[in-house]
Design a binder for these strands. Structure first.
Length: 250
DNA sequence: GAACTCTGGAAAGTTACGTCA
DNA sequence: ATTGACGTAACTTTCCAGAGT
């Protein structure tokens, strides 16, 4: 799974963008390696040994944000070390590190295989064609699941933004109604012409006359301290409003 | 050209198993 | 030692597109 940049502006980044050999690999497959050698396992034990003497691979994994682009310094050493450890971690049943690596590289090129490619890959990896086929099926499923999770998060953020905007608009309506129902304020209001409405977005904007009148009330008209509730984005182009896109929320 | 059958592949769902905390 | 969570390999079912008749 490589970087993705679709219409939603979403992208998935794994590892370090500057370190290509590992950065594009799936963490799922990186974590799968049947390192059954006892001697090497002791090495992993040493590396993951926690204070209480137990192995702590999950906490180690927590230190890696697969969606964050690490700094250059991290890329060169820390990320390298972490990825190297990930690559060697035994995790469940797997086809082996080298095989997974080749399968991943092949998957990056094309997520589906024609029969000829499948046979060639199976021969290269000393696997049955059926195993290669199954691996690609499962890999596509994992990719789709991951993408679904990302899309779901994006939609959730959109929903949150709209909810907040809805709440803000309700408050604004209430304030406007209160303003209209107040006779004193209503009679001393400036003419409606001081409020202008954008013909394209139909948002009310405050003209320079009204804003100056509101900001600097004269001694002869103290009641001119008129509050005009205008949302902070009223004068903003639609495309730059906070609820208009995923990039504006983070 | 339309209707039907066959076949292969993909997706979705499920199961079994190994590892770890 | 046991258990639940998690990841992966492998299987089953369903659907669909393309080829052949």
């Amino acid at each position: 799974m490589g970087d993705r940049d679709d219409g939603l502006g979403l992208s998935l980044r794994l590892g370090c963008a500057h370190y290509q050999p590992y950065s594009k690999l799936s963490l799922l497959s990186l974590a799968s390696h049947p390192m059954q050698n006892l001697q090497q396992k002791n090495t992993w034990n040493d590396m993951f040994q926690s204070s209480d003497g137990h192995l702590n691979t999950r906490s180690f994994l927590k230190g890696i944000d697969v969606n964050r682009a690490p700094t250059t310094a991290e890329c060169e050493e820390e990320a390298m070390m972490k990825m190297a450890v990930l690559l060697a971690m035994p995790q469940g049943r797997s086809l082996g590190f080298q095989r997974s690596l080749v399968l991943e590289e092949t998957f990056k090129e094309h997520s589906t295989l024609n029969p000829k490619q499948k046979l060639a890959l199976a021969k290269q990896l000393n696997l049955r064609p059926r195993q290669v086929e199954v691996w690609f099926q499962n890999r596509r499923a994992r990719t789709k699941l991951k993408q679904t999770e990302v899309d779901c998060e994006y939609l959730k953020r959109c929903c949150d933004n709209l909810t907040e905007e809805n709440r803000r608009l309700h408050k604004e309506v209430q304030e406007l109604r209160a303003l209209k129902l107040s006779p004193q304020l209503y009679t001393h209001m400036n003419p409606p012409t001081t409020l202008t409405m954008c013909p394209s977005c139909e948002r009310v904007a405050v003209s320079s006359l009204s804003t100056s009148a509101a900001a600097t009330p004269t001694s002869s008209s103290p009641n001119h301290q008129r509050h005009v509730p205008v949302s902070p984005w009223a004068a903003m182009p639609i495309s730059t409003r906070p609820f208009n896109g995923p990039e504006s929320t983070s």
